[in-house]
Simulated assay, not measured.
Amino acid sequence: MNALLLSAWFGHLQILQILVNSGAKIHCENKDGLTLLHCAAQKGHVPVLAFIMEDLEDVPLDHADKLGRTAFHRAAEHGQLDALDFLVGSGCDHSVKDKEGNTALHLAAGRGHLAVLQRLVDIRLDLEEQNVEGLTALNAAAEGVHPDCVQLLLEAGSCVNALTQVVSPPRDGCLPLASEH
């Protein structure tokens, strides 16, 4: 992480502005492919997001990091509702998937971020969208043991009997008995 990325990560707008005005390269990434926008979105620094989008030139809103995640994904995954709202208002692509096929809905549900999940439901993301393992957001919420998110998704119309495409044993390595199916 260089000084510019660190200032975005920690929300130090004034430092960011000084660095930019001193000629810092704004199109930089860390080793994971995180840009200024990713850093500010993940940490929920809306004033920094606003500066990046409004005052800097040619900053791609939907640039993906090495996991295929955009700033929108990062905000959802880390429960940053205000940052998510800012990115939605800026016109980001809501339907983009990361390299594992996860949408922002999958990430918020899997991490148990109820307020973010509600907002994503409100903007009408596809509840039945599947990632590469065939998991829906409901599956991700259930796997992450987030009953409030499961309830929200069911009330929003998620299919309670949706099946995954990949059969994998439970994480403890034990397979269920035939009578448990």
Rank of each mutant, 00 (worst) to 15 (best):
L5H: 02
L5W: 05
S7V: 00
S7K: 01
A8N: 01
A8R: 02
F10K: 08
G11Q: 04
G11N: 02
L13R: 05
L13G: 05
L13D: 02
L16C: 09
I18R: 14
A24W: 12
A24R: 08
K25Y: 10
H27L: 14
T35S: 12
H38L: 06
A40K: 03
K43A: 12
V48G: 08
A50D: 11
F51D: 04
E54C: 07
E54F: 02
E57V: 15
E57Q: 15
V59A: 09
D62N: 15
D62P: 06
H63G: 00
H63V: 03
A71H: 03
H73L: 10
A76K: 01
H78Y: 14
L84R: 07
L87V: 13
G91I: 13
G91W: 15
C92Y: 02
K97L: 11
E100R: 09
E100M: 11
N102K: 06
L105F: 10
A108M: 09
R111A: 15
H113N: 14
Q118T: 15
L120V: 11
V121L: 08
E128L: 05
N131Y: 12
L135D: 14
T136Y: 02
N139W: 12
A142P: 00
E143V: 02
G144S: 08
G144M: 05
V145Q: 07
V145A: 10
V145K: 08
H146I: 01
P147V: 13
D148Q: 14
C149K: 04
V150G: 02
L153C: 01
E155L: 08
A156Y: 13
A156Q: 10
G157T: 09
N161T: 06
L163I: 08
L163A: 10
P169E: 03
R171E: 15
R171C: 11
E180C: 10
H181L: 15
